[in-house]
Protein backbone atom coordinates (compact mmCIF):
# COMPACT_ATOMS: atom_id res chain seq x y z
CA UNK A 1 0.00 0.00 0.00
CA UNK A 2 2.08 2.89 -1.27
CA UNK A 3 -0.74 5.24 -0.44
CA UNK A 4 -0.46 4.41 3.22
CA UNK A 5 3.25 5.03 3.36
CA UNK A 6 3.19 8.38 1.56
CA UNK A 7 0.09 9.43 3.44
CA UNK A 8 -1.37 11.17 0.42
CA UNK A 9 -3.38 8.27 -0.88
CA UNK A 10 -5.10 8.21 -4.27
CA UNK A 11 -5.87 11.58 -5.86
CA UNK A 12 -9.43 12.84 -5.61
CA UNK A 13 -11.50 12.95 -8.76
CA UNK A 14 -12.18 16.57 -9.61
CA UNK A 15 -14.57 17.76 -12.24
CA UNK A 16 -12.70 20.19 -14.46
CA UNK A 17 -14.86 20.17 -17.57
CA UNK A 18 -15.23 23.85 -18.59
CA UNK A 19 -18.64 23.26 -20.15
CA UNK A 20 -19.99 21.75 -16.93
CA UNK A 21 -18.50 24.68 -15.06
CA UNK A 22 -20.12 27.25 -17.33
CA UNK A 23 -23.45 25.45 -17.20
CA UNK A 24 -23.31 25.39 -13.43
CA UNK A 25 -22.61 29.13 -13.35
CA UNK A 26 -25.56 29.80 -15.61
CA UNK A 27 -27.78 27.66 -13.39
CA UNK A 28 -26.65 29.39 -10.21
CA UNK A 29 -27.07 32.81 -11.85
CA UNK A 30 -30.67 32.06 -12.81
CA UNK A 31 -31.42 30.36 -9.50
CA UNK A 32 -30.17 33.47 -7.70
CA UNK A 33 -32.42 35.70 -9.82
CA UNK A 34 -35.33 33.36 -9.14
CA UNK A 35 -34.70 33.46 -5.40
CA UNK A 36 -34.56 37.27 -5.42
CA UNK A 37 -37.78 37.50 -7.44
CA UNK A 38 -39.59 35.30 -4.93
CA UNK A 39 -39.22 38.06 -2.31
CA UNK A 40 -39.98 41.05 -4.56
CA UNK A 41 -40.57 43.58 -1.78
CA UNK A 42 -37.33 42.98 0.06
CA UNK A 43 -35.33 42.79 -3.15
CA UNK A 44 -36.85 45.99 -4.52
CA UNK A 45 -36.24 47.89 -1.31
CA UNK A 46 -32.59 46.87 -1.15
CA UNK A 47 -32.13 47.61 -4.86
CA UNK A 48 -33.87 50.99 -4.45
CA UNK A 49 -31.51 52.03 -1.65
CA UNK A 50 -28.59 51.03 -3.88
CA UNK A 51 -30.20 52.89 -6.78
CA UNK A 52 -30.48 56.13 -4.81
CA UNK A 53 -26.91 55.80 -3.59
CA UNK A 54 -25.68 55.36 -7.17
CA UNK A 55 -28.06 57.97 -8.65
CA UNK A 56 -26.84 60.82 -6.41
CA UNK A 57 -23.24 61.02 -7.67
CA UNK A 58 -24.26 59.96 -11.19
CA UNK A 59 -26.88 62.71 -11.42
CA UNK A 60 -24.60 65.37 -10.00
CA UNK A 61 -21.86 64.30 -12.35
CA UNK A 62 -24.21 64.70 -15.31
CA UNK A 63 -25.16 68.20 -14.13
CA UNK A 64 -21.55 69.23 -13.62
CA UNK A 65 -20.76 67.98 -17.11
CA UNK A 66 -23.55 70.12 -18.50
CA UNK A 67 -22.44 73.24 -16.65
CA UNK A 68 -18.89 72.72 -17.92
CA UNK A 69 -20.12 72.41 -21.48
CA UNK A 70 -22.18 75.53 -20.91
CA UNK A 71 -19.31 77.64 -19.51
CA UNK A 72 -17.16 76.48 -22.41
CA UNK A 73 -19.77 77.76 -24.83
CA UNK A 74 -19.88 81.12 -23.08
CA UNK A 75 -16.14 81.69 -23.35
CA UNK A 76 -16.88 83.12 -26.80
CA UNK A 77 -19.03 85.98 -25.59
CA UNK A 78 -16.30 87.93 -23.84
CA UNK A 79 -16.53 91.68 -23.52
CA UNK A 80 -14.19 94.34 -22.17
CA UNK A 81 -15.58 97.42 -20.43
CA UNK A 82 -13.43 100.57 -20.62
CA UNK A 83 -14.40 103.24 -18.07
CA UNK A 84 -13.02 106.53 -19.37
CA UNK A 85 -11.63 109.34 -17.20
CA UNK A 86 -14.44 111.73 -16.14
CA UNK A 87 -12.81 114.73 -17.88
CA UNK A 88 -13.10 113.07 -21.28
CA UNK A 89 -15.78 114.81 -23.31
CA UNK A 90 -18.24 112.97 -25.51
CA UNK A 91 -16.60 113.97 -28.79
CA UNK A 92 -13.20 112.93 -27.44
CA UNK A 93 -14.70 109.58 -26.46
CA UNK A 94 -16.18 109.27 -29.94
CA UNK A 95 -12.77 109.85 -31.52
CA UNK A 96 -11.18 107.33 -29.17
CA UNK A 97 -13.78 104.79 -30.18
CA UNK A 98 -12.96 105.28 -33.84
CA UNK A 99 -9.23 104.95 -33.15
CA UNK A 100 -9.68 101.79 -31.10
CA UNK A 101 -11.83 100.27 -33.79
CA UNK A 102 -8.81 100.01 -36.07
CA UNK A 103 -6.80 98.02 -33.53
CA UNK A 104 -6.31 94.31 -34.24
CA UNK A 105 -8.54 92.17 -32.05
CA UNK A 106 -11.21 94.80 -31.52
CA UNK A 107 -14.50 93.66 -32.99
CA UNK A 108 -17.73 95.36 -32.15
CA UNK A 109 -17.49 98.53 -30.11
CA UNK A 110 -20.20 100.54 -28.40
CA UNK A 111 -19.97 103.89 -26.64
CA UNK A 112 -22.21 104.68 -23.70
CA UNK A 113 -21.99 108.40 -22.94
CA UNK A 114 -22.38 109.62 -19.33
CA UNK A 115 -25.83 110.97 -20.22
CA UNK A 116 -26.98 107.62 -21.62
CA UNK A 117 -25.52 105.82 -18.63
CA UNK A 118 -27.30 108.13 -16.21
CA UNK A 119 -30.53 107.65 -18.09
CA UNK A 120 -30.20 103.86 -17.97
CA UNK A 121 -29.26 103.95 -14.33
CA UNK A 122 -32.24 106.15 -13.51
CA UNK A 123 -34.53 103.74 -15.29
CA UNK A 124 -33.20 100.46 -13.91
CA UNK A 125 -31.90 101.20 -10.44
CA UNK A 126 -34.86 102.96 -8.83
CA UNK A 127 -32.54 105.59 -7.34
CA UNK A 128 -33.85 108.27 -9.70
CA UNK A 129 -34.69 110.85 -7.03
CA UNK A 130 -31.40 110.37 -5.23
CA UNK A 131 -29.59 111.21 -8.46
CA UNK A 132 -31.53 114.50 -8.72
CA UNK A 133 -29.76 115.97 -5.69
CA UNK A 134 -26.39 115.56 -7.42
CA UNK A 135 -25.15 118.73 -9.13
CA UNK A 136 -23.46 116.90 -11.94
CA UNK A 137 -23.49 113.48 -13.57
CA UNK A 138 -21.00 111.29 -11.64
CA UNK A 139 -20.98 108.54 -14.23
CA UNK A 140 -18.10 108.18 -16.70
CA UNK A 141 -18.39 107.32 -20.36
CA UNK A 142 -18.01 103.60 -21.05
CA UNK A 143 -16.68 101.82 -24.14
CA UNK A 144 -17.86 98.24 -24.53
CA UNK A 145 -15.38 96.28 -26.64
CA UNK A 146 -16.11 92.83 -28.02
CA UNK A 147 -12.90 91.16 -29.12
CA UNK A 148 -12.85 89.47 -32.53
CA UNK A 149 -13.21 85.67 -32.39
CA UNK A 150 -9.42 85.32 -32.72
CA UNK A 151 -8.99 87.37 -29.54
CA UNK A 152 -11.75 85.69 -27.55
CA UNK A 153 -9.70 83.07 -25.76
CA UNK A 154 -9.00 84.01 -22.13
CA UNK A 155 -5.28 84.63 -22.79
CA UNK A 156 -5.74 86.75 -25.91
CA UNK A 157 -8.56 88.73 -24.34
CA UNK A 158 -6.34 89.36 -21.32
CA UNK A 159 -3.60 90.64 -23.64
CA UNK A 160 -6.05 93.00 -25.36
CA UNK A 161 -7.25 94.17 -21.97
CA UNK A 162 -3.71 95.16 -20.93
CA UNK A 163 -3.24 97.02 -24.18
CA UNK A 164 -6.46 98.99 -23.76
CA UNK A 165 -5.83 99.68 -20.11
CA UNK A 166 -2.58 101.42 -21.05
CA UNK A 167 -4.48 104.13 -22.93
CA UNK A 168 -4.34 107.48 -21.10
CA UNK A 169 -8.06 108.10 -21.59
CA UNK A 170 -8.95 104.88 -19.83
CA UNK A 171 -9.32 105.03 -16.11
CA UNK A 172 -10.47 101.46 -15.52
CA UNK A 173 -10.61 98.45 -17.81
CA UNK A 174 -12.54 95.32 -16.91
CA UNK A 175 -12.70 92.01 -18.64
CA UNK A 176 -16.06 90.28 -18.18
CA UNK A 177 -14.31 86.96 -18.49
CA UNK A 178 -14.01 86.87 -14.74
CA UNK A 179 -17.37 85.33 -14.03
CA UNK A 180 -16.85 82.67 -16.66
CA UNK A 181 -13.62 81.79 -14.95
CA UNK A 182 -15.28 81.75 -11.57
CA UNK A 183 -18.01 79.50 -12.88
CA UNK A 184 -15.34 77.25 -14.28
CA UNK A 185 -13.53 77.16 -10.94
CA UNK A 186 -16.78 76.50 -9.10
CA UNK A 187 -17.66 73.60 -11.37
CA UNK A 188 -14.19 72.16 -10.84
CA UNK A 189 -14.71 72.35 -7.09
CA UNK A 190 -18.16 70.78 -7.42
CA UNK A 191 -16.71 68.09 -9.63
CA UNK A 192 -14.19 67.23 -6.94
CA UNK A 193 -17.00 67.16 -4.38
CA UNK A 194 -18.95 64.81 -6.65
CA UNK A 195 -16.01 62.42 -6.70
CA UNK A 196 -15.75 62.48 -2.93
CA UNK A 197 -19.49 61.90 -2.72
CA UNK A 198 -19.23 59.06 -5.24
CA UNK A 199 -16.49 57.42 -3.18
CA UNK A 200 -18.54 57.68 0.03
CA UNK A 201 -21.71 56.40 -1.59
CA UNK A 202 -19.81 53.54 -3.25
CA UNK A 203 -18.68 52.59 0.21
CA UNK A 204 -22.33 52.78 1.30
CA UNK A 205 -23.31 50.44 -1.56
CA UNK A 206 -20.59 47.98 -0.49
CA UNK A 207 -21.84 48.06 3.09
CA UNK A 208 -25.50 47.67 2.12
CA UNK A 209 -24.83 44.72 -0.19
CA UNK A 210 -22.39 43.24 2.32
CA UNK A 211 -24.93 43.47 5.11
CA UNK A 212 -27.75 42.06 2.97
CA UNK A 213 -25.59 39.10 1.99
CA UNK A 214 -24.46 38.63 5.59
CA UNK A 215 -28.10 38.33 6.71
CA UNK A 216 -28.82 35.96 3.84
CA UNK A 217 -25.87 33.79 4.88
CA UNK A 218 -27.17 33.73 8.43
CA UNK A 219 -30.68 32.81 7.26
CA UNK A 220 -29.34 29.95 5.22
CA UNK A 221 -26.90 28.69 7.80
CA UNK A 222 -28.46 25.19 8.10
CA UNK A 223 -28.47 24.82 4.35
CA UNK A 224 -24.82 25.84 4.15
CA UNK A 225 -23.86 23.36 6.87
CA UNK A 226 -25.68 20.49 5.20
CA UNK A 227 -24.29 21.35 1.79
CA UNK A 228 -20.77 21.33 3.22
CA UNK A 229 -21.55 18.03 4.88
CA UNK A 230 -22.35 16.34 1.58
CA UNK A 231 -19.10 17.50 0.01
CA UNK A 232 -19.69 20.95 -1.46
CA UNK A 233 -16.57 23.03 -1.99
CA UNK A 234 -16.33 26.58 -0.64
CA UNK A 235 -16.53 27.86 -4.21
CA UNK A 236 -19.83 26.03 -4.71
CA UNK A 237 -21.29 27.54 -1.54
CA UNK A 238 -19.93 31.01 -2.29
CA UNK A 239 -21.34 31.18 -5.81
CA UNK A 240 -25.07 31.85 -5.18
CA UNK A 241 -24.24 34.67 -2.74
CA UNK A 242 -21.90 36.31 -5.21
CA UNK A 243 -24.60 36.18 -7.87
CA UNK A 244 -27.09 37.65 -5.36
CA UNK A 245 -24.70 40.57 -4.90
CA UNK A 246 -24.24 40.96 -8.64
CA UNK A 247 -28.00 41.05 -9.25
CA UNK A 248 -28.56 43.55 -6.43
CA UNK A 249 -25.88 45.79 -7.95
CA UNK A 250 -27.29 45.52 -11.48
CA UNK A 251 -30.81 46.25 -10.26
CA UNK A 252 -29.48 49.19 -8.25
CA UNK A 253 -27.69 50.50 -11.37
CA UNK A 254 -30.88 50.22 -13.42
CA UNK A 255 -32.92 52.04 -10.78
CA UNK A 256 -30.22 54.74 -10.57
CA UNK A 257 -30.38 55.24 -14.32
CA UNK A 258 -34.17 55.57 -14.18
CA UNK A 259 -33.93 58.07 -11.32
CA UNK A 260 -31.38 60.21 -13.17
CA UNK A 261 -33.46 60.02 -16.37
CA UNK A 262 -36.59 61.16 -14.56
CA UNK A 263 -34.73 63.97 -12.78
CA UNK A 264 -33.23 65.27 -16.01
CA UNK A 265 -36.62 65.11 -17.67
CA UNK A 266 -38.11 67.14 -14.81
CA UNK A 267 -35.31 69.72 -15.16
CA UNK A 268 -35.76 69.99 -18.93
CA UNK A 269 -38.45 72.71 -18.78
CA UNK A 270 -36.81 75.08 -16.25
CA UNK A 271 -33.42 74.74 -17.95
CA UNK A 272 -34.92 75.60 -21.33
CA UNK A 273 -36.50 78.69 -19.73
CA UNK A 274 -33.21 79.67 -18.09
CA UNK A 275 -31.17 79.28 -21.25
CA UNK A 276 -33.86 81.23 -23.11
CA UNK A 277 -33.13 84.15 -20.77
CA UNK A 278 -29.49 84.00 -21.84
CA UNK A 279 -30.42 84.04 -25.55
CA UNK A 280 -29.16 80.49 -25.74
CA UNK A 281 -30.83 77.42 -27.16
CA UNK A 282 -29.13 75.15 -24.66
CA UNK A 283 -30.88 71.83 -24.14
CA UNK A 284 -30.35 69.35 -21.36
CA UNK A 285 -29.34 66.07 -22.92
CA UNK A 286 -31.11 63.00 -21.55
CA UNK A 287 -28.95 60.25 -20.04
CA UNK A 288 -27.25 58.28 -22.76
CA UNK A 289 -26.91 54.57 -23.41
CA UNK A 290 -23.28 54.85 -22.28
CA UNK A 291 -24.37 56.21 -18.92
CA UNK A 292 -26.78 53.27 -18.59
CA UNK A 293 -23.89 50.89 -19.23
CA UNK A 294 -21.69 52.80 -16.79
CA UNK A 295 -24.30 52.67 -14.01
CA UNK A 296 -25.05 48.99 -14.62
CA UNK A 297 -21.33 48.21 -14.73
CA UNK A 298 -20.54 50.26 -11.63
CA UNK A 299 -23.52 48.86 -9.74
CA UNK A 300 -22.75 45.28 -10.71
CA UNK A 301 -19.10 45.62 -9.75
CA UNK A 302 -19.93 47.20 -6.39
CA UNK A 303 -22.58 44.55 -5.67
CA UNK A 304 -20.19 41.74 -6.49
CA UNK A 305 -17.43 43.27 -4.38
CA UNK A 306 -19.75 43.80 -1.41
CA UNK A 307 -20.95 40.20 -1.63
CA UNK A 308 -17.37 38.98 -1.92
CA UNK A 309 -16.36 40.80 1.25
CA UNK A 310 -19.36 39.44 3.19
CA UNK A 311 -18.89 35.92 1.90
CA UNK A 312 -15.18 35.95 2.68
CA UNK A 313 -15.83 37.13 6.21
CA UNK A 314 -18.83 35.01 7.18
CA UNK A 315 -18.85 31.80 5.14
CA UNK A 316 -15.68 30.38 6.64
CA UNK A 317 -17.22 30.65 10.11
CA UNK A 318 -19.90 28.13 9.20
CA UNK A 319 -18.73 24.55 9.51
CA UNK A 320 -20.96 21.53 10.06
CA UNK A 321 -20.81 19.92 13.47
Amino acid sequence: MTGRRSGRGPAFARNRNPMTWLLRHAQVMLASLGRLSRSPLGTTMTAAVLGIAIALPAGLYTLVNHVQALSGAWDGSVSISLFLRPDIRDDEAERLAQRLHTLPGVGELRLITPAQALDEFRRLSGFGEALDILDENPLPAVLLVNPTPAYSSPDKAEQLLLELRARPEVELAQLDLQWVRRLHAITLAIERAVWVLAALLSLAVLLIVGNTIRLEIQNRRPEIEITKLVGATNAFIRRPFLYDGLWYGLLGGLIAWLLVSISLWLLQGPIAQLSGLYDSVYRLEGPSFTSLLAMLGGGGLLGLTGAWIAVGRHLSEIEPS
Binding site: G3, R8, G9, F12, A13, G231, T233, N234
Partner: peptide
Amino acid sequence: VWVNERNLNRLKDRDIPYHRR
Protein backbone atom coordinates in the same frame (compact mmCIF):
# COMPACT_ATOMS: atom_id res chain seq x y z
CA VAL B 1 -6.86 8.41 11.21
CA TRP B 2 -6.88 6.56 7.90
CA VAL B 3 -9.90 6.48 5.58
CA ASN B 4 -9.94 5.17 1.99
CA GLU B 5 -6.12 4.77 1.97
CA ARG B 6 -5.60 8.39 3.01
CA ASN B 7 -4.09 9.76 6.18
CA LEU B 8 -6.67 12.36 7.22
CA ASN B 9 -4.14 14.20 9.39
CA ARG B 10 -2.32 15.17 6.21
CA LEU B 11 -5.40 16.04 4.21
CA LYS B 12 -5.52 19.74 3.36
CA ASP B 13 -8.63 21.74 4.26
CA ARG B 14 -9.41 22.39 0.61
CA ASP B 15 -9.55 18.62 0.00
CA ILE B 16 -12.13 18.03 2.75
CA PRO B 17 -15.14 18.40 0.36
CA TYR B 18 -13.68 15.72 -1.92
CA HIS B 19 -13.08 13.44 1.05
CA ARG B 20 -16.68 13.90 2.22
CA ARG B 21 -17.96 12.84 -1.20
